[in-house]
């Protein structure tokens, strides 16, 4: 494998926070702050696939919205391909040529009133990428690449199955030839039987086109199939990140282990695999003091229940974790 020269990453997310004010009366009293994303740092290098995993409500999708410019960050910095993202002043057109998104729900993400050909041609026309003939050629080519036929261009989205729709969604994301695509749970709305097809298609296309991917999923097994690096998110923060082998072979954060245990495995007995993390995600409006995971953590110590919570620290090169237990174990060894 080639050693990457230390260049500027394609995507740099630096200490990003997205907070939402919740409730609050007429005069602003009683408002609470929901910290959907709270100090997340992340990099994606060009051509690389990074997985971002976590339960529903941990802030994955909010992070994705912030990266593509749909959600203004409260603080922090996002730099994509050398362009710093600022709310309001960002050049949306230039951003669109660099980063695109595959949405979770293929039923809601395609305009039901436009034919597939129009859906794919619209971004090309908007960005003036070729004349009518060239656009038609590109659309047909992209339909073929995602496993559909060029004549499908004349159909409406509702004439397709969920898997086919997601193929259209992928085609739309790739047609502008971006450098990075954000896949926000691209298969979670699909039947289990077609998930693998879509994941394989994504791997194949991003590899052949050299597109970097930020793969967001609540399912570690999806990430396992395609990602070079994995970041695990819990309640708005990244709790562990590293190369995927390390994360999958030696997960250090108890939350990562809980997620791993949730992957169905026909060769493991069911008994004894369940009770790794109990209970639900705490209310993000009132996060627990200290480590946010401590109420559900089987290994929680006294230190975990006190502020300040653990920060990300390297336990081996390239592998960081935000857990007192893991960090203490490292010091002890």
């Amino acid at each position: 494998m080639m050693v990457e020269v230390a260049t500027e990453p394609l995507l740099t997310v630096d200490n990003l926070a997205v907070h939402f004010a919740q409730g609050g009366g007429l005069f602003g009293g009683g408002a609470r702050v929901l910290r959907a994303v709270d100090g997340v740092s992340l990099t994606v290098r060009s051509g690389e696939c990074v997985g971002l995993v976590g339960e529903s409500g941990c802030g994955k999708s909010t992070l994705a919205s912030a990266i593509v410019g749909l959600q203004a960050p409260t603080s922090g910095r996002i730099v994509i391909d050398g362009i710093p993202l600022r709310s309001g002043t960002t050049d949306r057109m230039r951003l669109a040529r660099t980063v695109q998104m595959v949405f979770q729900d293929p039923y809601a993400s395609l305009n039901p009133r436009r034919r597939v050909g129009e859906l794919l041609a619209a971004p090309l026309r908007l960005h003036a990428m070729g004349d009518g003939k060239e656009i038609g050629r590109r659309v047909a080519d992209m339909l073929r690449r995602v496993g559909l036929r060029p004549e499908h261009a004349n159909r409406y989205p509702h004439e397709f199955s969920g898997g086919q729709r997601q193929r259209i969604g992928i085609a739309r994301a790739l047609i502008l030839e971006p450098k990075l695509i954000i896949c926000d749970e691209p298969v979670s709305a699909l039947d289990v039987s077609i998930r693998a097809q879509i994941i394989n298609l994504l791997v194949e296309l991003t590899d052949s086109l050299g597109v970097a991917t930020l793969m967001i999923s609540h399912d570690l097994s999806v990430v396992e199939h395609m990602c070079d690096r994995v970041a695990v998110m819990y309640l708005g923060r990244i709790v562990e990140s590293g190369p995927w082998q390390r994360i999958f072979e030696r997960p250090s954060h108890p939350y990562t282990r809980a997620l791993m245990a949730a992957i169905p495995d026909p060769f493991k007995p069911i008994v004894g695999r369940r009770a790794v993390a109990s209970g639900d995600v705490p209310n993000p409006l009132t996060p627990p003091l200290g480590c946010a995971f401590h109420p559900r953590c089987p290994e929680a110590m006294a230190q975990c229940r006190q502020a300040p919570g653990p920060e990300l620290a390297a336990i081996e090169p390239g592998h960081t974790t935000a857990c007192w237990v893991a960090q203490r174990a490292l010091i002890a060894s």
């Binding site: 919205s65 593509v68 410019g69 749909l70 949306r92 057109m93 951003l95 669109a96 040529r97 980063v99 695109q100 998104m101 949405f103 979770q104 729900d105 809601a108 993400s109 395609l110 305009n111 039901p112 619209a122 971004p123 908007l126 960005h127 969604g169 739309r172 502008l176």
Partner: peptide, 11 residues
């Protein structure tokens, strides 16, 4: 809706 978000992301 997703398609409006998609259109925004398209620029």
């Amino acid at each position: 809706q997703g398609y409006v978000q998609a259109a925004k992301v398209m620029g």
